[in-house]
Amino acid sequence: MLEGVNRARAVKPGKIYGAPGEGSSGLISLATALVLLALWVLVTEMNWVRPLFLPSPFTVWETFLTAITEGASNSTLLEHILASLARVFCAFFLALITAVPIGILMGVNRVVRGLFDPIIEFYRPLPPLAYLPLIIIWLGIDEFPKVFLIYLAIFAPLAIAARAGVRSVSTEQVHAAYAMGATRSQVITHVILKAALPEIFTGMRIGIGVGWTTLVAAEMVAAHRGLGFMVLNAAEYLASETVIMGIIVIGVFAFTFDLMIRYLEKMLIPWKGKV
């Protein structure tokens, strides 16, 4: 009898305690967002904070609708969004096609690592505003310097992630590929690159986040439209409702594209966390 009960209760070892962090946190995140929104409404409706410093969410919503229809900072919200999306995604695409190959080569070739590692490690901790004046002096104030500034911010985490992904490849996998007659290029493309994909996608998520963070700094360079420009322009006139509305729009887009990268990662790397 007891033996039958024990057999019925027997489960896989991983199911007894559960993996660290296992389970969905969606409901908790939703509840957190609702609580913060309720606190925002409470604080503003009770006039605990002056509207200049924290406008109510209803005022921000009205500003959002006005920006869509009538515009803000000499352009409609859609025009600001399209300008910023073009800059961020152009920079992200350029970083993706350059940083990933360089990062992989840094992991497999000591000469490439010696060439790029000191450059990347030197400028990576620097805030974009530190080298923004130099970019203006070198490249002017056209559209390219804005994209280039965002590109530099995205390049470093992507290259470092690709290099770390190469380091995560086991020696046994490489030796097994060579034993089956694979060439060096085949080992890089079919073994090393595939094993490095989880780290590369992590670098993509970090990179796109850093890109949106750098957007405001990039649009300080003689921009005429863009979400960052809209926020900066509104700040000059103490239009805090427009500033908060712009921050929320930037955050929504950044979070949306992070979710898209997570989805692609789940579809393209189904084995992540299982091997």
Rank of each mutant, 00 (worst) to 15 (best):
V5N: 10
A10E: 14
A10N: 09
A10M: 12
G14D: 13
K15E: 14
K15Y: 10
Y17T: 13
G21K: 02
G21W: 01
G23I: 08
S24F: 06
S24H: 10
G26A: 11
I28M: 13
I28A: 11
T32I: 08
L34W: 06
L37T: 09
A38D: 07
A38H: 06
L39S: 10
L42P: 00
V43W: 08
T44N: 08
E45S: 12
N47K: 15
N47I: 08
W48T: 07
V49T: 06
F53A: 14
P55C: 13
T66P: 02
T66Q: 05
T66D: 11
A67Y: 03
E70I: 10
S73G: 05
S75M: 04
T76Q: 12
L77N: 01
L78C: 03
I81C: 02
A83G: 09
L85H: 04
A86K: 14
A86V: 14
A86D: 05
R87M: 04
V88L: 08
C90R: 05
C90Q: 12
A95H: 00
L96G: 01
L96C: 11
A99T: 03
A99K: 03
G103N: 02
V108F: 07
N109C: 08
L115G: 06
F116M: 06
F122V: 05
P125F: 08
L126D: 07
L129G: 10
Y131T: 06
Y131F: 15
P133Q: 08
I135Q: 02
I135S: 00
G140N: 08
G140P: 05
I141H: 07
I141Q: 10
P145A: 07
F148E: 02
Y151E: 01
L152N: 00
I154Y: 00
F155Q: 00
P157Y: 00
P157V: 01
P157K: 00
L158R: 03
R167G: 15
T171E: 15
Q173N: 12
H175V: 15
M180T: 13
A182Q: 02
S185L: 13
Q186F: 07
V187E: 11
I188M: 08
V191D: 02
K194S: 13
A196T: 04
E199N: 14
I200Y: 02
T202C: 01
T202V: 10
G203L: 03
M204Q: 07
M204N: 05
V210Y: 05
V210M: 09
G211Y: 00
G211R: 00
L215W: 01
A217Y: 06
A222I: 09
R225A: 11
F229N: 05
M230P: 04
V231Q: 03
L232M: 14
N233E: 13
N233K: 14
A234I: 02
A239E: 14
E241K: 09
T242R: 11
T242P: 02
I244T: 00
M245V: 08
I247Y: 09
I247M: 15
I248Q: 04
G251H: 06
V252L: 14
V252R: 06
T256F: 15
M260F: 15
Y263H: 11
Y263E: 15
L264N: 04
K266W: 11
L268W: 15
P270H: 05
P270Y: 05
W271G: 10
V275D: 11
